[in-house]
Write a protein that binds this DNA or RNA. Sequence first.
DNA 1: TGCCCCCTGCAG
DNA 2: CTGCAGGGGGCA
Length: 286
Amino acid sequence: MPELPEVETIKRGLEKKIVGLSVTSVEVLTPRSFQGDPGNLIGKTIAQVWRRGKMLGIDLSNDCTLLIHLKMSGQLVLVEDQERFIGGHPTADMYEDLPNRSTRVIFSIRTGQKISKLYFNDQRKFGWIKLGNLTSDFGYLISGLGPEPLDKNFTWQILRKSLFRHPNLPVKAALMDQSVIAGIGNIYASESLFLAKIDPRRRVKDLTDLEFKALKSSIVKALSLGIKHSGATRRNFITVEGLRGGFLDVANVYGRDKESCKVCGSKIQKITQSGRSTYFCQKCQD
DNA sequence: TGCCCCCTGCAG
DNA sequence: CTGCAGGGGGCA
């Protein structure tokens, strides 16, 4: 899925367009993609949009929250009412016509007399939207998450302590555990380790404090760069506006196996760790 | 801790 | 056709 930078990109895109609007209808096309009673949404106003790790929250004017996890292929695309009537589809080439075969849920949202539609598309159906009370229904999903890497109070000591939940794991696998740090996935784990010059196969317990410091700042750097480029699009990710993210154009290692390292020129390696692809530069990372 | 699984579709 | 894809839950 979308990792932290992709979800943050969606969060920012959504909040500037839907906060204050009210939900007029909800169509659930794929039942397993939506849990809860959609009826509870009708007439409610959108109060706030937030992100925690890779999860997205939309708070309603009552006590309800829409909690969203996009998993591998989820998308949230907003088609504003205007676009449907001013010269047809001005942004038609940004996204195919919606709904499409991957559309699972459609929210209709009103501002004044215009109705915009928010599409939840999810090719692989791994993603979900849950409607419920944040504290009583979703507490268990949020409380297990590790620290937010872009918070001010995220320090290398916190990172070290957190990673030491899995002292024997290769550091790359540990980074992807959401209870260790929230929001890092396959792309940004590889990219962070490259920036920190750490071999992804190194065990957590073998890292030095100097390396934990480097890793902390590299994580912040990689995630921030991801947000700056509106996320990474490999296959499915698009923004709320239907645009691709540009991060992979500036990535150092992810998806670049067989290509040469931008720093030293040697060949980027691709290996498998706990079932997932890892990319790294043997020469830069040891 | 490591595997299999949930799904669909695209590239090789 | 097989393998692979921004995730992660459940099971041994």
